[in-house]
């Protein structure tokens, strides 16, 4: 988030605040229905985020030209940019609507809200991201512990290794990276989110023991080699995951794995 050079202005809002905030929302009534745009306006106040605008519109949904309409539907939960659920495309960029502040979006022109385009659109701003969770299942993104009974502490690790894993472990399955990735869509590429989780698990001393299973899950037709190295994903990730590093490392691992797999035959 850009640091605010003259932060005090936020107490009173912007220097020359607009009278109202205009939201242009891409709407769809049902999964395969037609899409349309609707515009809403609300009085400007300092410190609005997109969610509080939507909450206000929902209370009394009337478009800018006075038409009664249905309330726009969107998802939200944590409101702290940590659950990932509220992701949508705001002024052309996929991001979390809870952490999108109106004051930082230039409220002098209309703000556009659209659902993410890479996932089935359920209604309005809601999309179905279950494929991301399915991918986690496919790549076996878990540590194969013997059981959850008391077996004492886990393996020792240096803070350095932990810090590297921690960076991958912050992924909130929001989908921004997939929305930005030119290769992702129509099931032809598993995408950086799942590959980063493979990296997370393969780095762990116990996780390493089932590394081959995970590697074979990302070496299929839709596997890691589909990455065109456009690096859009890293720039899009709100949690700053080192996604291209994960792709690089896992690519290396799959090459080795492929070699050994081939030798074993």
């Amino acid at each position: 988030m850009s640091a605010n050079t003259n932060a005090e202005e936020h107490h009173q809002g912007l220097r020359n605040p607009p009278r109202e905030v205009v939201l242009r929302i891409r709407r769809r009534d049902r999964q395969d229905g037609p899409a349309r745009w609707e515009e809403f306006a609300l009085p400007y106040r300092p410190n609005l985020n997109i969610i509080s605008c939507l909450m206000e519109i929902r209370k009394n949904p009337v478009t800018r030209d006075g038409q009664r309409t249905t309330p726009p539907v969107w998802e939200m939960n944590c409101l702290e940019q940590v659950c990932g659920i509220c992701t949508m495309v705001i002024n052309g960029r996929a991001r979390q609507s809870c952490s999108a502040l109106v004051d930082n979006l230039d409220p002098h022109s209309p703000i556009t809200l659209e659902p993410m385009s890479k996932f089935p659109n359920v209604r309005d701003l809601v999309v179905d991201r279950s494929e991301m969770f399915d991918h986690l299942k496919r790549v076996k993104a878990w540590i194969e512990i013997d059981g959850s009974y008391d077996l004492g502490p886990g393996p020792r690790m240096s803070q350095e290794d932990v810090a590297e894993r921690y960076a991958y472990s912050r992924c909130m399955t929001c989908g921004c990276c997939l929305e930005a990735c030119p290769q992702y869509g129509d099931g032809n590429y598993i995408g950086p989110q799942a590959i980063a989780q493979v990296r997370l698990m393969n780095m762990h001393p116990s996780g390493k023991m089932s590394r081959d299973d995970r590697l074979s899950a990302i070496t299929g037709d839709d596997g890691i080699t589909n990455c065109g190295n456009a690096q859009n994903c890293v720039r899009a990730c709100p949690m700053s995951l080192p996604l291209t590093k994960a792709i690089y490392e896992e690519n290396r691992e799959t090459v080795l794995h492929g070699l050994f797999g081939w030798l074993r035959k």
């Binding site: 502490p153 886990g154 921690y166």
Partner: peptide, 14 residues
């Protein structure tokens, strides 16, 4: 300890 074994990146001592 169980969470440690499940791979939670708990902060570490030297």
């Amino acid at each position: 300890y169980l969470f440690d074994r499940m791979g939670v990146p708990f902060s570490r001592t030297p």
